[in-house]
Nucleic acid binder design. Structure first.
Length: 222
DNA sequence: ACCCAGGGTCATA
DNA sequence: TATGACCATGGG
């Protein structure tokens, strides 16, 4: 007898199987924001190398990045891929920080105002903005990523084609405004998402087996 | 030699 | 609104 999946129920399973993830990795709120840009469609291991380059050059600050030569900035970012584009995006984010008086001042804004101004920055889209809101500004925001869509589609809770805001509200309504919960939930999804509902899933070994309708099927029928 | 990774922008229909 | 091209490195 399987229990029906739910958004809070999936969290309990993920947490029970994997424990706390201690996210977001980074030594400062600014480093978290830099990581959020650099990790766009990019493996985190590559992002770490780029951030290490910035640290070694003592360039991990808004001022250093804005005044650095574009060519040199791109060179530091090289290991993270898309380095020309990310150099532009990183500069845009740092300019925004400086113009707005820094993280401390921005932290006074209500969440929806903070999101609006973040989304106005070139290179910051919905997911990156929410990464920054949740992990750098500690706002109760649920981040929707490709793993979230795939896993919850597989569980039969969503169609997977809903737009970003629709899914974000769905999750936030189901969870309530809980920073700790949003933080841990998204971290669990990203860190363990690769092993869940991937092609030819081993449903018998998946930690969501007990709540996954697809797990009862013989093969990959999802 | 593929395939993919903690997306976003821009052009086109 | 909704696809598609493009960006680019590193690990499996």
């Amino acid at each position: 007898m399987k229990s029906r999946p739910s958004i809070p129920g999936v969290y309990r399973k993920l947490f029970a199987a994997n424990g706390r993830q201690h996210w977001w990795p980074g030594d400062s709120d600014f480093e978290i924001m830099v990581g959020a840009i650099l990790t766009q469609n990019t493996a985190w291991a590559n992002v770490e190398k780029a951030i290490a380059n910035l640290k070694k050059a003592r360039a991990l600050s808004p001022r250093s990045i804005v005044k650095a030569h574009p060519k040199r900035l791109a060179a530091w970012l090289k290991p993270s891929g898309y380095f020309n584009i990310k150099a532009v995006r990183l500069r845009a984010m740092c300019r925004w920080l400086l113009e707005r008086g820094g993280v401390r001042k921005l932290a006074k804004l209500p969440t929806h105002d903070l999101r609006r101004t973040l989304l106005a920055v070139h290179g910051i889209g919905a997911e990156t903005a929410d990464d920054i809101l949740l992990y750098a500004f500690r706002r109760p925001v649920f981040v929707i990523d490709a793993y979230t869509r795939r896993i919850f589609h597989r569980l039969g809770l969503i169609r997977g084609t809903e737009d970003y805001e629709t899914l974000r509200r769905l999750f936030e309504n189901a969870l309530g405004p809980d920073v700790r919960l949003c933080n841990e939930y998204h971290a669990l999804i990203v860190v363990h998402g690769k092993d869940i509902c991937k092609k030819r899933p081993r449903c018998d070994r998946c930690c969501l087996n007990a709540v996954c309708p697809s797990a009862a099927l013989p093969r990959d029928a999802g």
